[in-house]
C-alpha cells in the first residue's frame, strides 16, 4: 500500500492518517462494473437519474480495472468468462473491494447448469453479497454503504489489506 505502511505502529500520526485516508477512500469509491446480464441493467439504473449513486460518491464509473477500487460483479459468470473476471480482479490495484450482485454471481441462482460458475466467491474473494434476482437498485446502494463501512474499518497496518 505504499508509504503509509512503512510508518507502522499505533501512534497518533498513523491512526489519524488512517482515518483521513479511509474517509477519502470510502466517499470516493470508483466502481468497475463487471456487468454481464440482467443485474447490469439494474446497475445502470442505479447509476442513472432516479437512484443516482453519485449522492454517495461512487458515480465515477471506470471501465478500466487499473483505475478502480470496487469491483461490482453483476450477472451470471460462465466458465468462459471466469478467467476474464480473474484477470480483471488481478489487474485492479490494492486496496480493492468486491460486491457480488445478484443470485447468479453469488451462488449460480436458478441456473444449476454445466456452464455456470456456482458463485464467484469460489475463485475470487467477495466482500459483500447482494441478494435478489435481480436486486433492486436500493439493494445495490445498501451494498455500497456496507462497502463504505468496511473501508472505514480498514487499517493499513493490520486490516484486511494490511501488509
Amino acid at each position: 500500500m505504499g508509504l503509509e505502511s512503512l510508518i507502522g505502529g499505533e501512534g497518533f500520526l498513523t491512526t489519524t492518517v488512517n482515518g483521513l485516508v479511509n474517509w477519502g477512500r470510502k466517499n470516493a469509491l470508483w466502481p468497475m462494473p463487471f456487468g454481464t446480464a440482467c443485474c447490469a441493467i439494474e446497475m445502470m439504473a442505479t447509476f442513472s437519474g432516479r437512484y443516482d449513486i453519485s449522492r454517495f460518491g461512487a458515480e465515477v464509473v471506470r471501465f478500466s480495472p487499473r483505475q478502480s477500487d470496487l469491483l461490482i460483479v453483476s450477472g451470471r459468470i460462465s466458465i468462459k468468462m471466469m478467467p476474464v473476471l480473474q484477470k480483471i480482479y488481478r489487474q485492479m490495484p490494492e486496496p480493492k473491494w468486491v460486491i457480488s450482485m445478484g443470485a447468479c454471481a453469488s451462488c449460480g441462482g436458478v441456473f444449476d447448469t454445466y456452464t455456470l460458475v456456482q458463485g464467484v466467491d469460489q475463485f475470487i474473494p467477495v466482500d459483500v453479497y447482494v441478494p435478489g434476482c435481480p436486486p433492486r437498485p436500493e439493494s445495490l446502494l445498501d451494498a455500497v454503504f456496507e462497502i463504505q463501512k468496511l473501508v472505514g474499518e480498514d487499517r493499513f497496518d493490520s486490516g484486511k489489506h494490511g501488509s
Binding site: M1, I79, P83, Y114, V117, F123, K160, G162
Partner: peptide
C-alpha cells in the same frame, strides 16, 4: 468443469 479454476486469494499486497 465449472469448479476447476484456480483460486485467487487476497493476501496483503
Amino acid at each position: 468443469e465449472r469448479r476447476q479454476f484456480p483460486k485467487v486469494v487476497a493476501r496483503g499486497d
